[in-house]
């Protein structure tokens, strides 16, 4: 086994993920429509009711559409991470996952490769969304689009790792609806995606604290600052730490002798 083998496996996994994405046009359209509905309808409706004072990285008053754009990019990656996890549960139930897991490579590498492939898809979705937003006149400085790339990679990996971790616990597809209700929605609404922290503090200290420590908030802030050519070191370290935590737990979860795979034995 050598480096070339690892690279070939990574190529295989990424190509498969991209091809599956291309073949599932509905998935791409819904991934794009969801944030656009929020941008075109929700943000337009709330534009006049939500006043936002200039907070970093913004230097002037901004429109609400501009404020929630990073949050909606985060939403794309959050949903994509969960979608990948859903597909892993499906693959495991249907059997496809086995062909991956019995490959002659360390399991941690196979999971990381799968994670990278899923993140790649989420980055494509995010840029497609930004293109439509640009046409709609929601724009950021040009260099922001380039600075965004490493931030998207990190946030996508972190949210994908969370999905991976969840998929190691979820035994059946039917249980996935619960994940939507108990993970995706609280994570999204209890974050800085739709409103800044100070706004939340006005309503509830508890909500403010929860939102502050929500890894999704930090991923959104990382994206927000990157979009304006700035680097939020706290958000970066927080997101990276969350990634390490989620990924390590997922690797343990998929370890045949330690994790949930062992407990799932017999339920085939």
């Amino acid at each position: 086994m050598n480096l070339l083998h690892y690279l070939r496996a990574l190529r295989g996994i990424a190509t498969r993920e991209l091809l599956r994405f291309v073949h599932q046009r509905e998935r791409f359209i819904s991934a794009l429509v969801r944030p656009l509905v929020w941008l075109f309808i929700f943000a337009a409706g709330f534009r006049s009711t939500l006043g936002l004072s200039p907070i970093p990285p913004y230097e002037t008053y901004i429109l609400y559409e501009e404020y929630i754009t990073p949050g909606l990019i985060g939403m794309i990656q959050l949903f994509n991470g969960m979608q990948s996890s859903l597909s892993m549960v499906y693959d495991r139930e249907m059997g496809n996952m086995r062909t991956l897991l019995i490959s002659p490579l360390p399991r941690w590498f196979l999971l990381v490769a799968k994670l990278l492939a899923g993140t790649l898809v989420s980055i494509l979705q995010a840029y497609a969304f930004l293109l439509v937003a640009w046409v709609y006149d929601v724009r950021t400085p040009l260099e922001g689009y380039l600075d965004l790339l490493p931030a998207l990679l990190l946030s996508g990996l972190m949210l994908g790792a969370l999905g991976l971790l969840l998929s190691s616990f979820i035994e059946q597809l039917e249980n996935f609806a619960g994940v939507m209700n108990f993970v995706i929605f609280p994570m999204f609404f209890m974050s800085t995606a739709l409103y800044p922290l100070w706004k939340l503090q006005e309503s509830s200290d508890l909500l403010h604290t929860l939102a502050e420590y929500n890894p999704f908030s930090q991923a959104v802030e990382l994206i927000r600052f990157a979009l304006y050519g700035q680097f939020n070191i706290y958000a970066c370290v927080y997101t990276l730490s969350s990634l390490i935590l989620f990924l390590s737990a997922a690797v343990i979860g998929y370890n045949p002798s330690k994790g949930m795979m062992q407990k799932k034995g017999g339920k085939q």
Partner: peptide, 16 residues
């Protein structure tokens, strides 16, 4: 949804 060949290439990649 993938072709026969694409499925086999995927496996070949996994085996290096």
């Amino acid at each position: 949804d993938l072709s026969v060949e694409r499925n086999l290439f995927y496996h070949a990649d996994l085996h290096g």
